[in-house]
Structure formats: C-alpha cells, structure tokens
Amino acid sequence: MAAREPIIRVRDLVVGFDTATVLDRLSLDVYRGEILGFVGGSGAGKSVLMRTIIGLVPKRAGSIEVFGIDLGEAGERLRRATERRWGILFQQGALFSSLTVRQNVQFPMREYLDLSKRLLDEIAMAKLEMVGLTPDVAEKFPAELSGGMVKRVALARALALDPEIVFLDEPTSGLDPIGAGAFDDLIGTLQRTLGLTVFMVTHDLDSLHTVCDRIAVLADGRVVVEGPIDAMLASDHPWVRDYFRGKRARVAAE
C-alpha cells in the first residue's frame, strides 16, 4: 500500500466562543480513503471541529489544509472549488423544506453544473436508489418523511456531486438499531464503491466497532488518543476507558 497522504490536515487549531476556548491547539490527520470516527463527550467540541473545517465557524489560530490547500489562505474561487469536493450530512438532515426530495438532491447539481433535465433527473434518482430509497420518495416533501428517510435523503444530497470527502454529523442519532446498522452498512458500501473518505462525528459504539477504520478521541480541547478500535480498548486515558470499556460498551462489543 502506498504511503498514505493526509487528505485533511489540522494543525494547532484554536477555536473559542466569547471567553471559552473549545478547541485548544488541536492537531489531526485524516487519510484518504479511510472512515474516521470522531468521538468525545457531549459539548466537547466534536461538531465544532467539523464545522470549523468546513468553514462555518471561524478559527482563532492554527491551520486547516484540505486536499493540500490551506483554506485560511485560499481565495474565494479556490474555496468554492474545494467546497464542491466535499459533502456534508447535518445532524437533523437540514433538507430544504419547501423543495421535494428530488429537488433537494439536485440542488447542488443545479448550482454547479449545467446539465440536461433528463440527466439531472436520472442522476438524482440513481443517488436516491444508491442510498436505499425507492423511487416513489422522489416527489415527497421533507415534512412527509420519517427520520430514517430524512437521513438517507440528506446523504444522497451530500453525495450529489460525487465528493471525495463526506462529513457526517451523528448520522445514526435518532435511528432504531436496525436502521442504524443498515446506515453503517450503507456507508461502508459507498465508501468502497465510490472511494470516499468519511469523517464521522458519532456517539454510536456499534458504528465505531463495525465500520470505522480509525477513531480519534476529543477531550480537553485536543485529540488525546487516535488509532484503530484496538488502540481505544488498550488506552489508559480515563475518559477513553469509561467510554470504550464501560457497561454499554461491553454489551456493544459482543
């Protein structure tokens, strides 16, 4: 296997709100083609890190490089070109409520591409089927969908432009165990088929055990442990121990 290049490089990132510092000189590498699970206590800053990388939250110090491009230094056009190469799944889906499912998936395509209506429709339907939905969902509105379906449509929209990186913010939260397992399988399959890199913020121990290649733990504003699941189970850090070897974890690991 060739030497792995980091597709996302975060170095000494400092992010805070008002007087509180949430991320304190955090450094992290995400390698091309892997599924990275990002865990931490509630309010520790997992979503903040993700939002800072994609540019929704300003940083106080440090550097973020995605695809080798320093996003802090990049101009407007370069930023927009970079944004086309990633897709984001927000925790509640964040589908546009006045558009149908098909229009939601086509939204990024219409924005950046100039394709025939026929191809737009066919590709949108293909994406919906690839995330496990049936064609009759296409003309529904987000308010008419169940929680699991909303997540799948949001995933299809995140994958609309065949991105190289997909950011998932707690994708299995609110899903029943069967649905969550199916979603994990879907991520794994799509990652293999499309060659995606997946950055997944999650609490779901089952996801961490089954589908993540590597895991990074956020505590005290920085990454304290990173590595495959075995490294987590062997770690002595008190929070990591409680998280991965506590009662719930033992049940999940079986």
């Binding site: 064609p135 296409a138 499309l194 060659g195």
Partner: peptide, 21 residues
C-alpha cells in the same frame, strides 16, 4: 478493477419510472 463495483451499482438503478409530477 476498483471501478467494477461502481458500474455494477448503477446497473440496478432507474429501473422503475419515477412517479410523474
């Protein structure tokens, strides 16, 4: 080889016509 999965994935999509608007 690494694209075979992708091609077989799209073989099965768009088989049914979508509901008409």
């Amino acid at each position: 080889d690494h694209y075979r999965g992708l091609l077989s994935e799209v073989k099965n999509v768009n088989r049914e016509p979508p509901p008409p608007a």
